[in-house]
Amino acid sequence: MNDRYGAKTFITEIIVLIAALLFCLPLYFVVSISLKPGDEIFESALVFTDNPQWENFPVVWNAGVANAFVSSVVITVGSVVLLVILGALCSYVLARRPGRLSNGLYIMFVLGVIIPFQLSIVSIYTVFQSVGLAGNCLGMIILWVGVMMPMAILLYTGFVRQLPRDYEEAARIDGAGTLRIFARVVFPLLRPVTGSVAIITGLFIWNDFYASLIFVGGSEAQTLPVAIYSFVGQYLSQWNLVFAAILVAILPLIIFFILAQKQMIRGFAGGMKG
């Protein structure tokens, strides 16, 4: 019985621990530098400061990060909510109504995952500008719902196809209509994959710099990555403030991941417990 925890397990644990520490190192740098006074940054980059500057955070918060934070939250939450509702509804139909039309549409969505959206960014921007969707949150939400929908459909459709039909058939016999079956029976069963869709699309949207710079850069609706970028130019010599802004930007993601990690793993595993 003593063999269960031997030298081999101990060495494996040490290796895994070192790997985990390596992955945490960038986060350590962000936290460490964000709290340093300006003159300490280049003197001892790896050492945690004895004199943490908590006021760095209110400084960056009031210097435009607050606005960008609100825009990022509105755009990310708005997009993810729409992606979840529309993606789940659409996938339910694609998975449960087999036929040429469904298969064709599904292939189109899969192609959407493969083809980079950057290819069509110029034409999208032209259309958005002409209809007043450039430079505001609504435009970004519409853009992201379109761009990320193929990923949502791919994940949802695969999951719905695995769901036993008995639940829906039981609900049909119980007298529920299609919409009620979806809302009361199917959608709650999609919870694990909904977690995956929310995390994957949410992370992508929250972190995106490229599309945000083009569509909302310099506007009232600019998002955190764009705001931090503009910050770099303004405070070129004050890396502690830049890192404080970065920490503000990644903190919600870390909290979200901690709260939703179980769902995420279950969603990726593709299983479902009754």
Partner: peptide, 27 residues
Amino acid sequence: PGDRDIAMVFQNYALYPHMTVFDNIAF
């Protein structure tokens, strides 16, 4: 099916896993 006024018991029971027993029966 819902308008035929029949009730069915499935082989694997098809109980809605996210609902309580009360809600399953009440559905």
